[in-house]
Computed example of a mutant assay.
Amino acid sequence: MLYRVEGIVIRSMDYGEGNKIITLLTEHDGKVGVMVRGAKKPKSRHAAMTMPFTYGQYIFFRNKGLGTLNGGEIIESHHKLREDLTLAAYGSYACELLDRVLQEEETGSFWFGQLKACLDALQEGKDPEVLIHLYEMKILQAAGYGPEMDVCVVSGTDQELEFFSPRLGGVLSRRSRHLDPAAMAVSPSVLKLLRLFAKLDMRRLGNVAVKDTTKAELKTAMRALMDMQLGMQLKSRNFLDQLDKYQI
């Protein structure tokens, strides 16, 4: 059967001497694997369509399992992301995270819309550190692990919310902190950002100016939350950590 879909390349791997297998994130059909024959050859007309972050229309044949690319057209190459090492690292993390969290049978336009918005915002020059934590929040929420940010996750009160518990999945009041001694104290600025992230759609993010100290605290909170709720070891995140050490 011939399929025509719009998708984003979230994974690309060599297969054999001249072929590639790409994983597309589509708006309505979830993740789709497609074989691109001859993609590694110098004169391949489909090589550009296998590049990471590429958003395009893909036409392929498929009966069962992998499809085989027949043709297509690039809508947005996101080439700026591939030309910048730091942006490429953030883009790779966004793609790998979604690829690992989204199950094969899951579909829905939400995942597609959030990833596309993330890649577009990275290309537009928005702060990648702030952007990626908002994206992480959206992935957690879509996977059913979104934190409670408005009231104490234990008592339900909206008073004295001074701590954040990655283990319990949300904010804690001062009186409930004893239930999770490992809960971290968070500044009002970080609490405000986390609440914003919980309510904001990626596609509506404007330019946000955040102090370096606030970004460092935000990263600590989101890293702990991601590790506790998802517990995934991602190559792209390890690479981002290495980049941070190098830049320091």
Rank of each mutant, 00 (worst) to 15 (best):
M184W: 06
L85I: 11
L172R: 05
I22R: 04
Q242W: 12
L81N: 01
E83T: 07
G113Q: 05
Y58E: 09
Q247T: 15
I139Y: 04
L131R: 10
E106R: 13
L85G: 00
V36W: 00
D244L: 09
F164C: 04
F239Q: 11
E6A: 14
P181N: 06
R237W: 05
M232N: 08
A216N: 14
V32E: 09
G16R: 12
A221Q: 04
M137P: 08
T50Y: 00
G71E: 06
E27Y: 04
Y135K: 07
G113F: 01
L243K: 08
L97G: 03
K64G: 10
L172T: 09
M13H: 13
E160D: 14
G67F: 05
D244V: 13
K64P: 10
F239E: 12
K41H: 02
L66C: 00
E129N: 13
T54P: 01
M228A: 15
W111M: 02
R177F: 07
Q242R: 13
L196M: 12
I8L: 12
A47I: 15
L25E: 02
M35Q: 02
A183E: 02
T50A: 03
L25A: 04
H133F: 15
D127F: 00
G7D: 09
M232E: 14
L115Q: 08
L85H: 03
V101S: 00
G169M: 06
L122S: 06
M35D: 02
S109A: 14
L25S: 00
T26N: 01
L87N: 02
A182W: 05
M226V: 09
H46W: 15
S109N: 12
V130R: 05
R37H: 00
L81G: 00
A48L: 12
L81F: 03
D120A: 03
D120F: 08
E27A: 14
L69S: 11
L168G: 05
R237L: 09
D84Q: 03
A185F: 15
